[in-house]
Design a protein around this nucleic acid. Structure first.
Lengths: 116, 116
DNA sequence: TTCGATGTTCGTGAAACGTCGAACAAGCTA
DNA sequence: TAGCTTGTTCGACGTTTCACGAACATCGAA
């Protein structure tokens, strides 16, 4: 497996962030990660094949929205909340609110048994 | 010419707004309209063919970001600032700030001779 | 009525996207 | 070592997007 590439703070581009947030599955993933807690790949539940889920997580990572940490054979994902706040102040907050208003991405969740 | 379709307030979808803002030309158009003033189609200057510009304006309109008014054979475009504020409070404001931080869409402007 | 200006629509092509299943790589575990 | 688990990568497929020029429709002006 390749070492995942994460853009640095200054490399995070607005249009890529927007593009990443233009898909309901990815919005759902962001929503699940919104509490700031790190989640295991396997905890994430989305109505797509695992290869597709892998693709979406890659788009989020490449856009700078999430960070992926590998530990042995498993991966853990976090939202880059602080970095986003530093780069585009207020953006994440407002988008998270908008997600709930529009109820986008509710098809994505956590596997049963995950912490609330 | 077909009468342009504008989504109503409640029909404005977050993912479509995000998709609309994932292209630098469209971001530039929003930026030009950010002062809230109505602009004539012909005042807008972007480095694409006019059919392509028409396409981008349509995407913005369909997403609910702009409103197009027709008068005779000319069109006038405005940003739906109030509607957006009502639907997704704070979003437009924050995105406009982000646009300047990242300097996206600066290739789009107004034709010489337009009001500042 | 004829002409010119203004946008939209159409046809086309190249590129990107979302999706899947299959194959693969890397690390635990028995 | 052999096998299992975990996630990524690889083609393939159909859809959507962006881009252009050409053709079109509509209205104002001459």
């Amino acid at each position: 497996m390749q070492k995942a590439h994460h853009p640095e703070l200054g490399e995070i581009a607005l249009t890529e962030v927007m593009a990443a947030l233009s898909d309901p599955i990815r919005v759902g993933l962001v929503r699940v990660l919104a509490d700031g807690r790190e989640r295991g790949w396997g905890q994430l539940r989305a109505p797509v094949a695992k290869s597709t889920l892998s693709h979406h997580l890659r788009v989020l990572r490449d856009a700078g929205l999430t960070r992926t940490r590998q530990e042995g054979t498993r991966c853990y994902v976090t939202l880059r909340g602080d970095d986003l706040q530093a780069r585009f102040p207020g953006l994440l907050q407002v988008v998270l609110s908008a997600m709930e208003i529009d109820d986008v991405g509710s098809q994505v969740g956590l596997r049963d048994g995950a912490d609330p």
